[in-house]
């Protein structure tokens, strides 16, 4: 839904980092994206490509490598960690309600691979 705004910020950030490193071209962008960011990867890439091409950016044509993070819960009684599956926030072992330990809301650039 909001991929265009995110893509625009992403082009800005990657361009800025690549220029700071005096790179000629950006080959790969490694991203950490949480499930709760509600980002559709294909849509993000499409918007990114359009914006980068429009600006003739040095990040034009860069590939994405994305690692996804889920929202995570812990059951203290059973010492079990679990992910929210089909909206179930209760422990898969004892069915008591879990405690959230990871939001899965990342929207982060981890690194970029550049060419000189």
């Amino acid at each position: 839904m909001h991929e265009h705004s995110v893509a625009k910020s992403l082009v800005d950030l990657v361009e800025q980092e690549a220029q700071k490193a005096a790179a000629k071209r950006v080959k790969t962008i490694r991203l950490a994206i949480g499930d709760q960011s509600h980002i559709d990867e294909a849509s993000l890439k499409m918007h990114f490509d359009l914006i980068a091409a429009g600006r003739k950016s040095i990040s034009q044509g860069a590939e994405f490598q994305i690692s996804r993070t889920p929202m995570k819960f812990r059951c203290d009684a059973c010492s079990v960690d679990f992910e929210i599956v089909n909206h179930e926030f209760r422990c898969p072992v004892c069915e008591r309600s879990g405690r959230m330990i990871g939001r899965g809301d990342e929207l982060r650039v981890e690194s970029i691979e550049v060419m000189d």
Partner: peptide
């Protein structure tokens, strides 16, 4: 052409923040 990896670790929405 040589390639190198640059560590970033920044929020994509940093400019908004």
């Amino acid at each position: 052409m040589s390639t190198r990896t640059i560590k970033v670790i920044k929020d994509i929405l940093e400019s908004n923040d």
